[in-house]
Amino acid sequence: MANNETDIKIVAFLCNWCTFTAADLAGTSRLKYAPNIRIVKVMCSSRIEPVFILKALLDGADGVLIGGCAPGDCHYSKGNFYARRKIALAKTLAESAGLDSDRIRLSWIPASEGPKFAHVVNEFTEHIKNLGYNPARREVYI
């Protein structure tokens, strides 16, 4: 367990059309969710390169959340199918490097589902809190 749980940091890459809109909806609906996420908006989940995820993890982020449109609903018709492959690659590499691929989560959250967004964020934050700090966070020699 992390000693100061509010200090847990999660980088969230959200696609503009679905998950970011869902986050917006969660906000305007005054839904409460864990304040630990830092959102980076991208136009499509397929924009997220494995390097982004690895960079976040190596620089000390405790978790990385990737949110996109549900398969079949991509604004660009097939971007999220490519995204899924990239995330699979990132997770596999993180796992091979012993970086705990559990800190990476891919969730499909449609634009209309504000409550789902809040739920995913809360659940993932709880999960990361249980995992504790990312060991890379304080590693000076990295």
């Binding site: 390169e49 690895l54 020699y141």
Partner: peptide
Amino acid sequence: AKGTLRMPVDRVLFHLGRLSHMG
């Protein structure tokens, strides 16, 4: 953040990132 920063930065990232590009 750490009191100390190893330079050049992104050294480990380079290797893992390269793996993601060509692995």
